[in-house]
Nucleic acid binder design. Structure first.
Lengths: 188, 188, 188, 188
DNA sequence: TATGAATGAGCGTTCATTCAT
DNA sequence: AATGAATGAACGCTCATTCAT
């Protein structure tokens, strides 16, 4: 039941927004009562935290697996991370939108749990860029921090428009983006 | 007074969110009463529409000016648009965050006013990419639509992290991003 | 309207208890809506504080007037205070019951406003006892503090049983009590 | 377990109030679940009745023992009863406060069980006063009923302020009160 | 003997909005 | 141009109670 509530809440929060979705909306759409909700969650915000953690933890684990694969070059690792994020939209896109949009609805104490994980994800990419620069895979004069924000912008913004059942597949989009990131769009 | 209310509302909506900011919060922070608000706006959503239109209209005008300057190459125009968006964060960053985050709080009728303008902005960039491809400035095999989404991701995401009074200036960041977009990060 | 709400709330809180009376109960019995209540009071507890202050402030003023009347002896002043408290039951009995019974429903900050006043009333009586001991009106070996608690017990407990429209009038009861306090019940 | 629940409930009801203490509060502080509570008690009010009866029955028994001791004078019996009530604060003070304060939370049917016992306790004292008047121990012109209310006021009010581990012991306080009741505070 | 899941009614409070003045 | 009083619907949350196990 707890899982059922969480899943349905992700659907509703994504569609209507966290503040705009009432507990009543949520439980009615499942067919239980408010009491049931509060049997499983201590508050609405607790549920939001659960969603955040479920999303970012899975992402971090996947990222870790990619980064620790020593058979891959930095370029390949970057491609894998980008593809993971695009592919992710199919299964986790709603949770992702909530993650990016509703963070402000977490209290300071709860933010203190989530924010370091979000930063970790970004810093892992930044570390990958720096390593690639050292190994001669990436240009040596990059501003790794800002470039990372750029890459994250490309991928995170995809949650706003990418349609997994549209014309271009996730792998195609990921390839286009990685090619853009690596080679640019300019004629040489 | 109407302007005063709008300006203050942008500050509050950005900080706390649209749904989380009450009319009471708003008018109290200005020192007037709720009646005053409803003298100038027919509803809270009307105010939100005003903010949206103020933001996107100004952006479109500025974009148009850049695109119509025939003395500039496509690359240069692209740079100008990116720089405009980054620079914009200093003066319009709060409105931009509201624009991206609170669109779901507009009714369908009001969305029908805003969405075409938002799409126009994107399609203008897409057109610029296509033109650049034709003119031999950009690689001829690009997926203009997806590349445009990538560029917009880079710039729009900046509203989440770029601090105009931080280490890197708006022009620096814009340059880094345009270089990344044009040349990529890979060693040739 | 504010006064109307306060008066009616005193009636209901006395009869059913503070926690047992809902805002709904209160506003329905007046014929307005909950919104109206919250237009005049910031919270239910704020209303309770209002009742407490209205009661104790009036009592303190009256007591002050009695104590400052230099034409009266200590015995006479004591009689006046006891009579005031018994007489008070007719007009303020409901507020008094709330005052004694519902103090625990005030937050610590609000208690900090009320408690000193309640203590002041008691200490004023204690001071009167001590003065009477010095002036030779009362026995010189009394424990003024405990005696004061005894006197307050007699008067405050009256709110639980004294019926102003019953067999004995307020003046009669006050006389019986003061005679008991002064002379005791023992045959000399 | 039933006793454990009752004891803990007395502690909580006294501190926070009956309505302000939830079954959840109660069972959590003991480490059992709500089901357990409802295995032993049919309702929250039933528990409150248990507390009331436990308190008043014990008091009545003790009072009966004092009154039936034919070796004692009326004055001595009065002293014993007053001392019993003050002493009682140490062991039964919390139950006493609940008894006086939370009676309004009993339904009419349950009140019909408790109120006659409470009245009996008072009437027993009134009877003692009358007997003392007949026997020439007390002044013959007393209003026994009101005097009894005065005595009960003194003792019952003690639950509000008397601290068994404070400066004055229970016996001292009882002596001061009985002396006050018997001889008054006036210089003869 | 005790639990855990679920209910349904109610609570204090907030809020966008209305409207006579 | 602006206010102040009032509304009514909704919200997050609590709670006493039930009941199958």
């Amino acid at each position: 039941m707890k899982e059922k509530i969480t899943e349905q809440s992700i659907r509703l929060f994504e569609k209507k927004g966290f503040s705009e979705t009432s507990i009543q909306d949520l439980v009615e759409s499942i067919g239980v009562t408010k009491g049931t909700f509060y049997y499983y969650f201590s508050s609405k915000e607790e549920l939001l935290l659960d969603i955040h953690l479920g999303y970012i933890n899975e992402l971090l684990q996947h990222q870790e697996r990619i980064l620790n694969d020593n058979s891959k070059s930095c370029k390949e690792k970057l491609f894998e991370i980008v593809r993971m994020l695009i592919t992710n939209i199919k299964t986790q896109g709603q949770a992702a939108k909530i993650f990016f949009r509703e963070m402000k609805n977490l209290s300071e104490e709860r933010l203190a749990i989530v924010v370091p994980k979000r930063d970790q994800f970004r810093l892992n990419i930044e570390g990958l860029i720096i390593e690639g620069m050292k190994l001669g895979e990436f240009r040596p004069d990059l501003n790794a921090s800002i470039i990372t924000f750029g890459i994250l912008g490309i991928t995170n913004w995809s949650y706003q428009w990418f349609n997994p059942s549209g014309k271009s597949s996730d792998s195609e989009v990921a390839e286009i983006f990685v090619e853009m990131i690596l080679k640019g769009i300019q004629v040489k």
